[in-house]
Write a protein that binds this DNA or RNA. Structure first.
Lengths: 345, 345
DNA sequence: AAAATTGTTCAAAACGTTTAAAATTTGCTT
DNA sequence: AAGCAAATTTTAAACGTTTTGAACAATTTT
């Protein structure tokens, strides 16, 4: 393996100069830099990461812990994240070390990982409100980036979408279309994103003077969407608009709507938040689904770069990104149906 | 962070002695070792992995590349492997670095990973016959362990089950129960395991003098099992015994059998190979499924240890394990039905 | 009592890089 | 042609560990 020393000997230069030449330091003569570059290429030089890491005091590895549900099913978003993160991190010469969490205690796997490995930082995802992992890492001064938002004014890097706006935009759209009975099929309220969407949903419904009785929670699967939509639509005063926590849940809800012989958007308008995961494409729904859209994949590169920037000393307050999801109006939403007049015209 | 030097200063010992004391070298006086251990504990010493790696010339990281199917669905076995591998590798002070493969070229991601990272070796899984990744890594002298077997007499560490025996045992069981028409619903024949099972299935059928016309391939999903079993059972001379490539496929096949109003094992015996993944439990089938069983999880620790042993110089020929899957006879297999006598008794 | 043996510890080199400080070369000014 | 500043390069230390060879001390052998 070619080393700086070998290149130096080859060219009659010191190791230091070779190092600086390759690292783009300005004090190296351009002619020298060329010679060094040429020799490095010729000898197939690759910097020894381990040596770099020793001297810089950084391991070049960041950790992420994969939460696995009791049934061992993978979080749908996981592969999406893994793909994007490894790609983006490798641009910054950083490796992603994974561990799998099967424990109940949310901080235990982080503790164990820190005991075992030399890690520069963490990527945290799927926060719960006031996430205990955040507290744990902050107490120990371990850098991290949070994908999402677990509290109001974080003092650490975060990247996420504005989940309040997701609900606000959704409710406004349906309300402006004349819907009065709007349902929310929300995710697990233990998740921070779902709590935020719920809060904003209630606020928005208040704003429009609408009732907040059509709220369901805990939907993650298609089957949840199905059963909860069925339940909502079979009630005394069924919704004419349904906001779903995800496209998967929306698929279930649509199945329920069809099952009841109703039409979208004639009888019921339906929309969802869309993380734009590759397997469920909202545009291929029949009819194409109206969504608030924020591709999960888009978060990967920012998360990676923000973490590395933070490790390089960039202060947390410059590393807080909150995007607004796009509102994409397709065919699954339309004007509220005319109220039924049972006693005829 | 406590270092060897600090401990040495604390005790008036040299770094070398401290290092040896902690690493269990025999030439250190027991009293000294105790003092060192105590001081290390007290100061919370953790060896600096990076420094260890620099001096030993090893990175302490091994790579694995996750293949993702076009639909981005995770291989069901992946999380199982990830969990087991990270746990076992961490016992050997080794980290698992993951990359995601979306490319067509099977070796490209390995090439890229080697360019980018300092990796001591690889874990290869899901081999195809004469796997090109094997060739690639062998040419470059990169150590690896293969989970499975891609060729007859490998010169590198392998760990897997005897897929020939899987078919042989399955066919023998059904044949001895009197079945004459035995079907195989196999996996993708591009996979080495499926090719081996096919070869052995044909050989075993020959041995028993049975016909080999009931072979289907490419089954990975429940729906494949359903449609292929439906197809087989609707044929002119339907099978009385079906061997499935996996429990998931068997679930589909059972659904087809039920759909046709047939009974297991009265009309049709069915069995499968069982990787014992957590989400589908063969024993919970109705009726409980007869299987050849080899838990995927059992492979993780051996794979990890074999790779690290190999990195430590253990020769490949001592690192070749081929286990025989257990044959577990449950309620889904039974005697072949009496041949129908259409013209009555 | 000297020599040999064994047990224990130490000093120093090595791994490959980065970087601060010192040294040298170059170019410019007078 | 000397003086000086700027540009470029080198020397050396540092990161924390492992490991070689030497040194020292304690013990045994002669």
């Amino acid at each position: 393996m070619a080393t700086l020393k070998k290149i130096g000997e080859e060219l009659g230069l010191s190791v230091a100069t070779v190092s600086r030449a390759l690292n783009g330091f300005p004090e190296v003569k351009e002619a020298t830099r060329q010679r060094v570059r040429e020799a490095a290429d010729r000898l197939g030089y690759r910097p020894n990461r381990v040596a770099q890491r020793l001297v810089t005091g950084r391991s070049g590895m960041v950790g992420m812990i994969v939460k696995i549900k009791p049934d061992m099913s993978a979080d749908q978003t996981f592969f999406e994240m893994l793909t994007g993160l490894t790609a983006a991190l490798s641009e910054r010469e950083t490796d992603l070390v994974l561990a799998v969490d099967q424990a109940q205690d949310p901080v235990l796997p982080y503790q164990r990982m820190l005991e075992r490995d030399v890690l520069d930082g963490f990527i945290l995802n799927a926060p719960v409100p006031d996430d205990p992992r955040v507290t744990f890492l902050q107490e120990r001064g371990i850098p991290f980036v949070l994908h999402g938002q677990d509290r109001a004014c974080p003092s650490y890097p975060t990247y996420g979408i504005d989940n309040f706006a997701v609900s606000t935009d959704s409710v406004r759209l349906l309300a402006q279309l004349g819907h009065r009975r709007i349902a929310l099929i929300n995710g697990e309220v233990s998740a921070a994103f779902a709590r935020d969407r719920l809060t904003a949903f209630e606020a928005a419904m208040d704003t429009f003077g609408l009732g907040k009785d059509l709220i369901r929670t805990g939907a993650t699967l298609e089957s949840h969407g199905y059963s909860q939509a069925l339940d909502l639509l079979s009630g005394e005063a069924p919704p004419t608009g349904i906001i779903c926590t995800s496209t998967v849940v929306a698929a279930g809800a649509m199945r329920a709507i069809r099952h009841l012989g109703l039409h979208v958007p004639g009888n019921v308008s339906i929309m969802a938040h869309d993380d734009a995961l590759p397997h469920t494409r909202a545009i291929n729904f029949e009819p194409a689904l109206t969504v608030t859209r924020a591709p999960m994949r888009d978060a990967c590169a920012p998360l990676a770069h923000m973490l590395v920037d933070h490790l390089n000393g960039k202060p947390a307050h410059e590393l807080q990104v909150m995007l607004r999801a796009d509102l994409i109006i397709r065919c699954s939403t339309g004007p509220a149906p005319k109220p039924e007049t049972p006693d005829g015209p």
